[in-house]
C-alpha cells in the first residue's frame, strides 16, 4: 500500500467494475424489453399507466406505502404468493417497463399489491379500506375531507356524520386510480418459454402427505 495513485485507482476500479456489471449492464439489457405484442389479443402488453394513476404513484411514494406492501409476486416454488391469489404467475421485469420508480418493497406487513387492481372491485372499495383501515392497516383519514351534505363534490361519499359527508380528496382519488391500475396478468411469450420449469424439478411435497 505504498503507492498512493495505484491504490486509489484500484479502489475506484473495483467500484466501477460492479457499477458497470450491475447498473450499466442491467440498464442496457432491460432497455431491450419492449411491450410484448400479442397477435391473439391484437394488443401490446403491459399497457401504459393512465395519467391519474401515475399521479397516484406519487401519493403511494410520499406516504411510504412500500414500507409495508411489496409489489412483486414470487414464483410457485418460492413461497405461496400464487396460492394467495396475488397473481397468476411470477412478476417479470417486463411488467414494470412503464413505471418510473418501481415500488418493490422489502417487508410484507400487508398483502402484495402487484396485481391488486384485479382484486379490488371499484374505487369505492379502495376508499372504504383507506378511510376505515383494517385490523393491520391504519385508517388514512387525512386522505378524506368533510363537506356539507348535498354539496356537489363529484366524489363518492364514504361516510356521513350529522350534516356532513366524508368525501375522498384528490390525493385519495389518484391513489385509488393507481391501485386499480396495478394488474399485469399477461404471459409474455419469451418469459413464458424461458421460465417454464418441469414440475418434477420443483422441490415441494415434503410437507403435503402429513395433512
Amino acid at each position: 500500500m505504498k503507492n498512493g495513485p495505484i491504490f486509489f485507482l484500484s479502489l475506484l476500479a473495483a467500484l466501477t467494475f460492479s457499477w458497470v456489471g450491475l447498473a450499466l449492464a442491467s440498464h442496457r439489457q432491460l432497455d431491450s424489453l419492449v411491450p410484448y405484442y400479442d397477435p391473439a389479443e391484437a394488443k401490446a402488453f403491459p399497457e401504459p399507466m393512465p395519467g391519474i394513476a401515475a399521479r397516484g404513484q406519487l401519493v403511494y411514494q410520499d406516504l411510504g406505502c412500500a414500507s409495508c406492501h411489496t409489489q412483486q409476486v414470487r414464483r410457485a416454488d418460492m413461497g405461496n404468493d400464487i396460492d394467495r391469489k396475488w397473481g397468476t404467475r411470477q412478476s417479470w421485469a417486463r411488467d414494470y417497463i412503464y413505471q418510473n420508480r418501481v415500488q418493490l418493497g422489502l417487508v410484507r406487513v400487508g398483502p402484495d399489491l402487484a396485481n391488486v387492481g384485479a382484486r379490488l372491485k371499484s374505487a369505492t372499495e379502495v376508499y372504504q379500506l383507506l378511510y376505515k383501515g383494517t385490523a393491520t392497516m391504519p385508517a388514512f383519514a387525512f386522505l378524506f375531507s368533510d363537506s356539507p351534505l348535498g354539496a356537489q363534490t363529484g366524489a363518492i361519499a364514504v361516510g356521513q356524520s350529522e350534516g356532513h359527508q366524508v368525501v375522498p380528496t384528490r390525493r385519495a382519488m389518484e391513489l385509488a386510480a393507481y391501485l386499480l391500475s396495478l394488474n399485469s396478468p399477461h404471459a409474455y411469450g419469451p418469459e413464458a418459454a424461458h421460465n417454464a420449469v418441469k414440475p418434477a424439478e420443483a422441490p415441494k411435497s415434503a410437507e403435503e402427505p402429513k395433512k
Binding site: 467500484l15 450491475l22 442491467s26 432491460l30 432497455d31 421485469a93 414494470y96 417497463i97
Partner: peptide, 17 residues
Amino acid sequence: PVHGITHAIVANWFGQN
C-alpha cells in the same frame, strides 16, 4: 433516472454499497 426494474437494481446496488 433509469426506469423500471433497472431503477430497483441500481437502488439496491447503491443501498447495499
